[in-house]
Each structure stands twice: as structure tokens, then as C-alpha cells.
Design a protein around this nucleic acid. Structure first.
Length: 788
DNA sequence: ACTCGTAGCCTTTTT
DNA sequence: GGCTACGAGT
């Protein structure tokens, strides 16, 4: 039974996709094919046919995409309990629940790239590793690479590896242990731990498979092995996995995204239904023709058509400029002109580029013309120093084991605790096998430090304990008090004195307070405002802050533009060594990814598209001046080619002009470049895929024999809320339950009269015998001895 | 323990 | 071209 209203306005293949509910489904959706529309209508349709929204999960690439999808869905079916979020946020929730099964505690910290590097640096020191022939960054990248492919320290150490990876193998296990000691995860762990969890706990896997019965994955072409293993394991008994993606838009190979996942789907699900969405509602035929012409130069590719539905529009422009500055100025001028003509508004414009560094001149040109714009990319809001410094206190309050947070908080604002003291505390903590926070308390109690550092630490602990007592109150109060007790504002002002960003830094603090206040309002039983805050602060990407309601121009990298569209797109700096990037040129596969990146950029445009390059671009080296080899692959006859250099005699004769790249001999060169040697081995063969993705043989055999009806799943309240039935049995805090008698250091003996929460975030209310007083404590912060 | 200077590394892309 | 991590000096 399908609602005609719901499917109104969808084309036949879209309807087919939206009404395919049970069984595996792969939607190969070209750009602008109404994919988001299909997904939302599909979910709405599922709900309408009576499926419990609680059993539906839709995983997106960014929080923003999730938010948009939610908004659209709610417009159709109203408020609902469908889980819509990123892979990472979904996995964090799962991991919070089953943290103990992988050696974490429920209140684990999430490290962003900076924190992870700090932790890695500690691990390097601990492993007595010399950073002479490698850098911290490279080491971090390599470890990330392995984690994305589910290569654990054990596997790495047992495999044959290059001398380079031999070094990685020295540090990786130490790093991983250190993270566990701190009860912390890095971004990659979030996925890797969940994959491990599902692989090593069949009964839990089964429970969750039933719990999340309908799983959708958007941007499937950009998933990595860890992500594949996760959705694969959640779709065994209930193989209702629906993936949408476009292999031509796979641009995250460097992050471990694996196009094989598309083929794997066909292999692992023989009944997979593949649907193609090829009709394009977004772009003019001119734009699509250019895009198609380009992408056909990719060798490793399944043919796919782009069917234009819009009527003829403007010619795609290719502009050549003498300098990057002129490029920026002219783009800004065109924006002004088009807006003045009245057909376009500022938010119709997107300026796209390969690297963040390319935004600078455009920013200046727009600023000079007083055109408002938003710049997406570069540093995340939560990665700013003053923000991170403050958040460190909250992290430490939430997770006292977190030594990275401790080290950041303990001496910011500086209070006389230097490297010496911190090193000593780290040694003490390792010797005593406690957190650095505990080691600090111990040092105070036993006077094992010099007088001056000791009193500084006493001061810090006093602040910390005071803050901890506020943990049950509103987050905004906790944050406010942190700022006050640490004299944080004064600290920021002092740091940035004279600096123009001083004001910004203070504004950022206010923004944090506002955010905290907002979360206080949203807080519920499942997750406190503090927990939500810490999750957001770690997982919010810069692209998530993109605003679509303000009437301003958008500047962003091609990667950040994925999934977006603009009426007018300016794709600047289409130059050799920038796009394709210099670092991708040795490897044919990377080169193809660069081509896809340009394809993504082109297909963001609805009405107008201008590609441009400049013959000189400020800084030396960077292959300035040479047009991208991709430009030669475009249909020259269909382009409106404008060379702004002709008026500048100085530049007309300069090397590397477009025309030089259009002679037959160069083209022969490109053809040669396209004849790839077929070496697809990227060294990712550490994990046997079948082994990682299949169930144990016995279980598989058992399954093939019977197609049984799943047991009814316990009633769930909302979202990713878990009932107590599937509570892991390993939670020692569960022992603190009403009726138990406990001993408190100060108040003496009392009886637990109420308890709530799980793990160390569990809090209990106690009626004390001595003075009949009641107090509520968080177990993670107050030692309570159970009396038997 | 803090401040200033320098060397090397960095950025291509981000959850 | 810019940051930042580390080292020497006070």
C-alpha cells in the first residue's frame, strides 16, 4: 500500500528506490539525481507502512547532511524517532553503551586530531621512540591508515612489513594502550572499536542487528573498510541495507574510503537490487556535458550516463588570468554584476578550490567590495586554542582518567606548573598505575614535590573539585564557573594583547556559553548537557557550521562542497599541481580521484559554471601558471574560452599558456598517462576481507539453514536509547543500587535510596545514618565503599 | 618557569 | 610563506 501523495513527483526509478523496503538495495545515484529526496521519501514511506521508526537508521557523511535530511523528513511525517546522524555519532552512542567490552569506560573522551597527536607524542616518549626519520604527523597518518583498515597493533606486528611500518609497529601498540588507559578514543577508534565489538560478540551483534533493522548509508562510495564491516554486521539477520552512492564522486580515498565496498556489496548480498538514478534535475545540459566529458577519462570506472532534464542554459566558461589576484578580482566583479542585474542573490554563489590556501585572494577581493561571505574549511571552531583549553576542563571533569585533558588544563591559564612538574606527575602516574589527576592528589597528600609546584597543584585541585561539585547542575553554570575560577577571560586577553583576534577569542567564549545554554534546554535522561557538549565539540566538522539561510557567498574546498549545489559556481585555480594536486601525480589511482574531485566541483553548478586558472600565483614552487591537464580533457568546442592575458603583452609569451597544452603531442602524452599499469595494490591487504566481514562459519551455516523470524525486540523509548535488557554484564557500577549500604569518607555510613545512569556517570542519592542528610554523588567522582 | 629565538615541518583534502 | 615544537638564556 503506497501513498500517492508521498510518491508524487518522483520518477519511475526514484519510486522504485523509495518503495523497495526489504532486502539489500544499492542506489547508484548520479549528481543532482534527487537522492536526498528519495531517501527522505523512502523513510517516510517506511513509516507509513507501519515500520517502527526506532528501527530505522540513516547514516550520513556530515552532521549537516543529517540535519537537512531530518528537516525534510519532519516536513513529511512530523517528529519521529528515526536515527539520523553520521557514522561517527552513531558509533559513539553504541560505544558508550558497550564501552567495557572493548576496554573503555562509558565516559570515554573523544580526541580530535590535536589531542590524538598529543597522546601520540606521549606514546612516542613512552616507547623510547626516536622521531628522527619520521614526523609525528606522518606517524599519526600511518596509524590512522591502519585503523581505517582494521589493522590492529597485533596484526601489524605479525605481518611482514616495510622498515617504515616496522617503526609504526613499535609505537602503535603503546599509543593504543595509552588511549585505553586514558579511556579515550581517536576518530578512527570510534569506528574500529565498534567493528571489533560486532565481530567478537556474536550475541550482541545479533541483538543490534534486530534493533537496527533498516539501515541506510548515504555517500556509500566514501565508506572505508571499518564502516563496511559495521553495516555488514548489522545487516545479517535483517539484510535491509540500503546504500546510496556514486563511484564517480568518491573523493576520500586518502581517508581509507574504498571503492571496493560497492563491489563487496554485490558479493556479500547475492539478492542485492541495484537501481540507477541517472536523471539530473540540477544542472543545465551544458554543465553536464562538460562533467561527463571529463569523467570519461577515468579508466577505473563503470560507465554511467548523466541525463539532463533541464533546458539549455549558459555556456560553461573557461577563463585565463595573468595573475591569481586578477582571477579573484574578476570573480568578485562578476558576482557583483550578476547580483546587480537582479537575477541572482549572494547565496547563489559558491567559489570552490582545491586547497584551503587558495581562498585568501578571494576573501580579500570580496572584503574590498564589502560582499559578505562564509568561509568553510580550515580550522574547526572547537579546534581553536582558547576553546580547546576551556573544553579540557570539562573533559577532565567528565573523565578523570584523561591525561591529555589533564596536561592541557593543569597549567592553562599558567599557574606555575611547568614541564618538570608535569613530567614528574606523568612518571608518578605510570608508576602508581593511576591517572595523573590521582597522582597529583597523591603527591599533595604525601608532599612528594617541591613546595612551590605543590601549592600550585593544590590550587588547581581546589578549582577542579569545586567544578566537579557543579557537575549535576546546568552546563552553562559549570562553564561560567570554570571561566571565573580560572580567570580565563583575563588569560585570553593577556595572551592576545594587541592582537586583533583578541575580540574574536572572547566572542568565542560567549559562543561556547550560548551553546552550553542551548544544550541545557535539550538535555534529557539519556544524555546530560555535558556529554552532548563534549560529543559535539569533538565531532562537529567545520562544514556543519555552514549556513544556508544567510544571503552570503560561500567559499569552500571541493571536498567540503560534496552534496551541495549553487546556481553559480566559480572553480578557481584549476592548475597543474594544484588540481591535480602535486602529491597525487605519481599514483594513477590518486590522479583519478583528483579528476573525480573536479567532477564533483563541476556538478555542483545549477545554472552557471566558470573554471579558471592564473598564469602566476604568488608563492614560488607550487607549479604556478600551468593549466590543469584536466582542462585539456574538456570539450573545447563547447566552452566559452576567455583569455584575459591578451591585453597584457608581458604574459602572452609566458610559458605554460593554455594553447601550448592543446597541441597534438601533448594529447598523446595524456593518452599515455591514461594507460595505467593496473597496479591496484595499495598495500591494504593486511585484512582478509571475507574473514573480517563474514560471520564465523558455524553461525553462517546455521543461518543458511533456517530463515527464522526474529524475536520481538524490547520496547525502546526513543533514538538510540537502550533498555536494560541488553545491559552489558560487565558494569561494576551497577552494584551501586538502592538498598545497598555504602561508606562515604566524610558523611560515614548511609543507604542508597536512588540511582540513575550507567557506568561512572551513574549517580546515587544516599541517606546518611549519622545526620539523616541526603546527598547525591556521581560515582566517578566520589569514592563510595559498598558495605556487605 | 617563562620568554624569546630558530629550525623544520607543513597542508591537499576531514570525521 | 606560516606555524609550532623545542632549546637556550634569564
Amino acid at each position: 500500500m503506497m501513498s500517492s501523495q508521498l510518491l508524487d513527483g518522483l520518477n519511475p526509478s526514484q519510486i522504485a528506490a523509495a518503495t523497495h523496503i526489504d532486502g539489500p538495495l544499492l542506489m547508484l545515484a548520479g549528481p543532482g539525481s534527487g537522492k536526498t529526496r528519495v531517501i527522505t521519501h523512502r523513510i517516510a514511506h517506511m513509516i507509513e507502512t507501519g515500520i517502527d521508526p526506532n528501527q530505522i537508521v540513516a547514516l550520513t557523511f556530515t552532521n549537516k547532511a543529517a540535519g537537512e535530511m531530518r528537516a525534510r523528513l519532519e516536513r513529511i511525517v512530523g517528529r519521529n524517532d528515526v536515527w539520523l546522524g553520521t557514522f561517527h555519532s552513531f558509533c559513539v552512542r553504541l560505544l558508550r553503551r558497550y564501552a567495557r567490552l572493548v576496554g573503555l569506560t562509558e565516559n570515554f573522551s573523544i580526541y580530535d586530531t590535536d589531542d590524538a597527536k598529543a597522546a601520540l607524542l606521549m606514546a612516542v616518549a613512552e616507547a623510547d621512540f626516536e622521531l628522527t626519520h619520521t614526523t609525528l604527523g606522518k606517524l599519526a597518518n600511518r596509524i590512522s591508515y591502519f585503523k581505517n583498515r582494521l589493522v590492529t597493533p597485533d596484526i601489524l606486528q605479525s605481518e611482514a612489513f616495510s622498515s617504515n611500518d616496522h617503526q609504526v609497529a613499535q609505537v602503535y601498540p603503546v599509543y593504543q594502550q595509552l588511549l585505553l588507559r586514558n579511556s579515550a578514543v581517536d576518530f578512527d577508534d570510534i569506528l574500529m572499536h565498534v567493528a571489533t565489538l560486532l565481530r567478537s560478540h556474536p550475541e550482541l551483534r545479533q541483538t543490534l542487528d534486530a534493533r537496527f533493522r533498516y539501515i541506510m548509508v548515504d555517500e556509500y562510495q566514501d565508506t572505508n573498510l571499518a564502516q563496511y564491516v559495521i553495516v555488514r554486521h548489522l545487516s545479517v539477520d535483517h539484510p535491509n541495507l540500503a546504500a546510496t552512492g556514486d563511484p564517480d564522486q568518491s573523493i576520500y580515498g586518502w581517508r581509507g574510503a574504498n571503492l571496493d565496498n560497492v563491489t563487496n556489496l554485490e558479493r556479500d548480498y547475492p539478492t542485492l537490487r541495484v537501481l540507477r538514478l541517472e536523471e539530473n534535475y540540477r544542472s543545465t545540459p551544458e554543465i553536464l556535458s562538460v562533467a561527463d566529458c571529463l569523467i570519461q577519462h577515468n579508466t577505473y570506472r563503470k560507465a554511467k550516463t548523466l541525463l539532463p532534464l533541464r533546458s539549455t542554459g549558459h555556456c560553461v566558461r573557461l577563463h585565463t588570468y595573468p595573475t591569481a589576484r586578477m582571477e579573484a578580482e574578476h570573480v568578485a566583479d562578476q558576482i557583483v554584476a550578476l547580483v546587480n542585474e537582479g537575477d541572482y542573490e549572494l547565496n547563489d554563489f559558491g567559489v570552490l578550490y582545491r586547497t584551503n590556501a587558495n581562498s585568501r585572494l578571494i576573501e580579500q577581493a570580496l572584503t574590498r567590495r564589502q560582499i559578505p561571505f562564509q568561509l568553510i574549511g580550515g580550522f574547526r571552531f572547537y579546534a581553536r586554542k582558547e576553546v580547546k583549553d576551556l573544553v579540557a576542563y570539562l573533559l577532565l571533569i567528565n573523565n578523570p582518567e584523561d591525561n591529555v585533558a589533564f596536561q592541557r588544563a593543569v597549567n592553562t591559564p599558567s599557574r606555575g606548573i611547568g614541564k618538570q612538574t608535569v613530567d614528574k606527575l606523568e612518571r608518578l602516574s605510570r608508576d602508581q598505575e593511576t591517572s595523573m589527576l590521582e597522582a597529583a592528589r597523591h603527591a599533595v597528600a604525601h608532599q612528594t614535590l617541591g613546595k612551590r609546584p605543590l601549592s600550585a597543584i593544590v590550587g588547581f585541585l581546589k578549582i577542579y573539585d569545586q567544578l566537579c561539585s557543579l557537575v549535576r547542575g546546568p552546563l552553562v553554570d559549570l562553564l561560567q564557573m570554570t571561566i571565573e575560577l580560572t580567570h580565563f577571560r583575563e588569560h585570553v586577553i593577556k595572551r592576545r594583547r594587541g592582537d586583533e583576534s583578541e575580540g574574536d577569542a572572547l566572542t568565542n567564549l560567549d559562543e561556547l556559553l550560548a551553546e552550553a545554554h542551548e544544550l541545557d534546554i535539550l538535555a534529557n535522561d539519556e544524555q546530560t548537557a555535558l556529554e552532548t557538549f563534549l560529543e559535539v565539540s569533538a565531532l562537529q566538522a567545520d562544514t556543519d557550521r555552514l549556513s544556508s539561510d544567510k544571503n552570503i557567498v560561500t567559499l569552500m574546498t571541493l571536498h567540503a562542497a560534496k552534496g551541495l549545489e549553487f546556481r553559480c559556481v566559480y572553480l578557481i585555480a584549476v592548475e597543474e599541481n594544484i588540481l591535480p594536486h602535486i602529491r597525487s601525480k605519481d599514483d594513477p589511482l590518486s590522479l583519478e580521484e583528483e579528476r573525480r574531485l573536479l567532477f564533483v566541483g563541476i556538478t555542483r553548478a545549477k545554472d552557471q559554471l566558470q573554471l579558471s586558472y592564473a598564469k602566476s600565483r604568488g608563492f614560488s614552487g607550487q607549479g604556478s601558471g600551468v593549466p590543469s591537464s584536466f582542462l585539456v580533457e574538456l570539450p573545447r568546442g563547447e566552452l566559452d574560452v576567455v583569455d584575459h592575458c591578451e591585453r597584457f603583452d608581458d604574459y602572452t609569451d609566458a610559458d605554460g599558456g593554455f594553447d601550448e597544452y592543446h597541441d597534438p603531442s601533448s594529447e598523446a602524452g595524456w593518452d599515455e598517462a591514461n594507460q595505467l599499469d593496473g597496479s591496484l595494490d595499495d598495500g591494504a591487504s593486511y585484512v582478509d576481507f571475507d574473514e573480517s566481514c563474514q560471520l564465523p562459519p558455524e553461525e553462517m551455516a546455521a543461518r543458511l539453514g533456517r530463515k527464522r523470524k526474529p524475536a520481538p525486540f524490547p520496547r525502546i523509548r526513543s533514538g538510540l536509547d537502550f533498555s536494560d535488557h541488553d545491559s552489558p554484564p560487565t558494569d561494576p557500577w551497577a552494584e551501586y543500587r538502592p538498598g545497598r549500604t555504602v561508606l562515604h569518607q566524610k558523611y560515614g555510613q548511609g543507604e542508597i535510596i536512588a540511582a540513575s545512569g550507567h557506568g561512572p556517570k551513574r549517580s546515587v542519592t544516599i541517606l546518611f545514618i549519622d545526620d539523616n542528610s541526603r546527598h547525591t554523588f556521581r560515582l566517578s567522582h566520589v569514592p563510595l565503599e559498598i558495605q556487605h
